[in-house]
Nucleic acid binder design. Structure first.
Lengths: 105, 105
DNA sequence: CCATCAGTTAGACAGTCATCGAACTGTCGA
DNA sequence: TCGACAGTTCGATGACTGTCTAACTGATGG
């Protein structure tokens, strides 16, 4: 999984745009992201698993994808993992889509 | 390819959201979309092909995906095909992403 | 120290998808 | 009518990916 250096609120590097688009493309990840974003404090890993009919392994895989894309941040505390939405990154992606919208000239 | 009924400027049906996310996930389609969106009059099919090192067959495939997602409109005029960006649909998708951003409560 | 629990990693498998060449359809000009 | 051209459809193929089970790591409680 490629590392993405720093996701400023401004422009996202091309590689990250690709990872984000890919991460968003899977319905499962999309749903996970929605759940994490639903509350301001994020969500616990086990919490997500409780709502999803999904194996721990599969969930872990998807979380890694979301993290690699920079869309979430995973904070490990002892046995547990806390998942936080990177709102700045998602916002930057929205902004990027907005740029496509606007013809140049 | 599933047909999408009407893409109002408001909410997009779940199925279309999935198609859009998927369409956006491929780098090639992303680039094609950018090119189509770059000018207000859209782009000619041959034009896109000229900028892309891509087979006609592959391009046709991608255009079908983009059309199925509702992201572009293909207007056939004689031998040629004119491609127009559906800005309302892309805007609606952006709006949807914005909804994830906002915690409910 | 041991059992249990949360999450990760590894490997396998099935389904999806981007891509191509080749054959096809329909249009235009001569 | 014929040939050239734009784009489409078909079938095959190789790569990727979502999913699982099983084995592992690390933390917590007794």
């Amino acid at each position: 999984m490629a590392k993405i250096k720093r996701a400023a609120a401004g422009e996202l590097p091309e590689a990250q745009l690709r990872l984000i688009a890919k991460a968003l493309a899977d319905p499962r990840r999309h749903e996970i992201l929605q759940q994490i974003g639903a509350s301001r404090e994020g969500a616990a890993c086990a919490d997500v698993r409780g709502c999803q009919a999904i194996t721990a392994a599969t969930l872990s895989h998807h979380l890694k994808e979301l993290e690699a894309a920079g869309l979430i941040e995973i904070v490990r505390r002892g046995k547990f993992a806390q998942l936080n939405l990177r709102r700045d990154v998602l916002e930057a992606y929205r902004k990027h889509l907005g740029a496509i919208l606007r013809p140049k000239g």
